[in-house]
Amino acid sequence: MHVVFFVPAVYLLLVTTPFATASRAADYLVIDPNQTCKRARWSRGKMADICNKKPGLLHQIARGIALGQNECQYQFRFRRWNCTTAKRSIKKVMLRDTRETGFVNAIIAAGITYQVTRACTKGEQIGCSCSKRKRKKNNKKKYPQLPEGDWEWDGCGENIEFGIKKSKDFLDTRYKKRSDMKTLVKLHNYVAGRLAIKNYMRTVCKCHGLSGSCTLKTCTRKMPSFREVGNRLKERFDGAAKVIAGNDGRSFEPEGATIKRPGRVDLVYSEESPTFCDPDNALGSFGTRDRTCNDSSQGEEGCGILCCGRGFVPRQEEVQVNCNCTFKYCCEVQCDVCNVTKKINMCM
């Protein structure tokens, strides 16, 4: 089996500068979080504290940003805008407030939360300790999925609260004194990203005792896989709610009176997305010409949707695969490399 893994070459981070006008802030893309910290070198606050005093934590945040960006590219691999890291695309996309913007903000907040929590569990020196719980009578109400019978918490679980706090410290704190529509939507989607992890923590138990007996059962809380997090946020992207500013100037509400008010776990946006069908530098769109499509699918990857009705051209492509594999004693599998012709469809 020939497997190719894609790892993004850059880290994504959104940094907000002071207002260019009274109603709009400019968001910029930087390649490395360390460049963000150069801006915060002489400032104060929790983000500046991370930048200036906690290099280990900053490193894990950078890894979390990359984790989120990689998952975004996986979830959007068949969409007209495929979460490219090309600066002249994603920078323009993040200047707007579309569904795509909301998903990226959510998955980045989730990525930082996930990576920092995981690093804490592994014992990285980032100023945290594992999550220590005590079994209480009301735990069953709070966590209905907890096991029955006699058991106790393991000594060290995944400290999701620490991961959430550091994600907030790095992303949210710079916006706390602002209540413009763009900021409200951004902060809401940050929360939705983190809750896609926190609300789906699972309880994992193991038995201790001689000969497979369960003399003692210990349980701990674990995060879902990050692929599960990405899948869940992609579902919420598909069902995201369009919102408008509330009358109080400090909140938002659904655009239509018949639309259900979005909850904390839902993604929201305030601006319609462009089609991304044709190249447009102002929108960060590269278009979909020469993208590979599936002529038998009615979904996002289908030629009808991805090619925007322009049609497609069948082509032949040579690819290398492992073939003529044999087992050599002991214990090795040897294969030849063969060229095979594969049919692909390219958007016109």
Rank of each mutant, 00 (worst) to 15 (best):
residue 283 L to R: 06
residue 156 C to H: 02
residue 219 C to Y: 08
residue 295 D to L: 05
residue 172 D to F: 00
residue 257 A to D: 09
residue 293 C to L: 04
residue 285 S to Q: 12
residue 91 K to I: 06
residue 5 F to T: 04
residue 134 K to C: 06
residue 105 N to D: 13
residue 272 E to W: 09
residue 226 F to V: 03
residue 57 L to M: 04
residue 303 C to L: 04
residue 178 R to T: 06
residue 41 R to C: 03
residue 212 G to V: 03
residue 222 K to E: 02
residue 8 P to N: 11
residue 314 P to T: 00
residue 12 L to V: 10
residue 81 W to V: 09
residue 100 E to L: 08
residue 295 D to E: 14
residue 138 N to M: 07
residue 279 P to S: 15
residue 43 S to G: 03
residue 2 H to D: 14
residue 64 G to Q: 01
residue 72 C to R: 04
residue 87 K to R: 10
residue 200 Y to G: 03
residue 235 E to Y: 05
residue 69 Q to K: 00
residue 81 W to H: 07
residue 133 R to P: 01
residue 19 F to Q: 11
residue 26 A to P: 06
residue 71 E to G: 13
residue 214 C to G: 15
residue 289 R to C: 12
residue 188 H to R: 13
residue 308 C to W: 12
residue 248 D to W: 03
residue 86 A to T: 08
residue 164 I to F: 02
residue 63 R to L: 13
residue 197 I to K: 03
residue 79 R to C: 11
residue 149 G to P: 08
residue 34 N to A: 15
residue 220 T to G: 13
residue 107 I to E: 06
residue 348 M to P: 07
residue 341 T to A: 11
residue 72 C to G: 07
residue 204 V to H: 11
residue 242 K to Q: 15
residue 234 K to N: 14
residue 270 S to G: 12
residue 270 S to D: 10
residue 157 G to L: 00
residue 337 V to G: 10
residue 45 G to R: 02
residue 75 Q to A: 15
residue 199 N to I: 01
residue 263 G to V: 01
residue 197 I to G: 05
residue 160 I to H: 04
residue 142 K to F: 07
residue 81 W to R: 07
residue 141 K to D: 13
residue 161 E to F: 00
residue 223 M to S: 03
residue 287 G to P: 00
residue 320 Q to V: 14
residue 346 M to V: 11
residue 113 T to Y: 00
residue 293 C to E: 02
residue 94 M to R: 04
residue 74 Y to G: 03
residue 19 F to P: 07
residue 17 T to E: 10
residue 201 M to R: 13
residue 116 V to H: 01
residue 16 T to V: 14
residue 88 R to Y: 14
residue 130 C to Y: 00
residue 227 R to Y: 11
residue 213 S to L: 00
residue 312 F to P: 05
residue 43 S to M: 02
residue 246 G to L: 04
residue 171 L to Y: 06
residue 149 G to E: 02
residue 346 M to N: 05
residue 265 V to W: 01
residue 224 P to S: 11
residue 69 Q to N: 12
residue 245 A to P: 04
residue 127 G to N: 11
residue 187 L to I: 09
residue 125 Q to S: 14
